[in-house]
């Protein structure tokens, strides 16, 4: 009972399916990607509430806020593994959270298949580069660097 519409033997008569019979799915990949993406948005979101609001509070509200931020300030913070870990977790969670959010938005609003495909390729490429660059910067930071 997978046909919807008309039956093969009597083309003019609509098929009435058994109650609660499963709707044939166009594509059933079996990976449940969308469910994991949904869970990831909530888990990462909860962590980001603390990480990002904490980051903004320290950087923009505490003491003299943005006015006190310069190379020396960054060097002082990144001398501590705690803040490096904080920033690394924040970078990865925020970038993946944002990438999945934009993926959903592209799927919602880009109607043509080609447009959707290329926008998402652009999104994934830029996200990969941002994650790579950000991670390298945190791991290879050198406070003694000379211009």
């Amino acid at each position: 009972m997978t046909t919807i519409g008309v039956s093969a033997d009597a083309p003019s008569r609509p098929v009435i399916e058994a109650p609660r019979s499963r709707r044939p799915s166009a594509r059933r990949t079996g990976t449940n990607f969308e469910m994991y993406a949904w869970i990831f948005m909530r888990m990462s979101g909860l962590l980001l509430v603390f990480l990002v609001l904490g980051h903004l509070f320290i950087m923009l509200l505490l003491d003299d806020g943005v006015q006190r931020i310069n190379f020396g300030f960054v060097a002082g913070r990144w001398a501590s593994p705690f803040w490096r870990t904080w920033d690394l977790a924040q970078l990865w969670l925020a970038q993946l959270h944002g990438t999945n959010g934009l993926r959903v938005i592209i799927n919602d609003y880009a109607e043509r298949d080609g447009t959707r495909f290329w926008l998402k390729m652009l999104l994934y490429t830029s996200s990969f580069l941002v994650l790579l660059l950000g991670t390298l910067v945190i791991f290879t930071f050198d406070p003694e660097i000379s211009g």
Partner: peptide, 28 residues
């Protein structure tokens, strides 16, 4: 949605500006 997209684009710029600490203290 609107705030999410705005934050996403700021994050892009913010990673790039912070990456300048690997160029020189002066450029950062």
């Amino acid at each position: 949605r609107v705030t999410g997209v705005l934050i996403f684009f700021f994050l892009f710029a913010h990673v790039l500006d912070t990456a300048l600490v690997r160029v020189s203290p002066d450029s950062y």
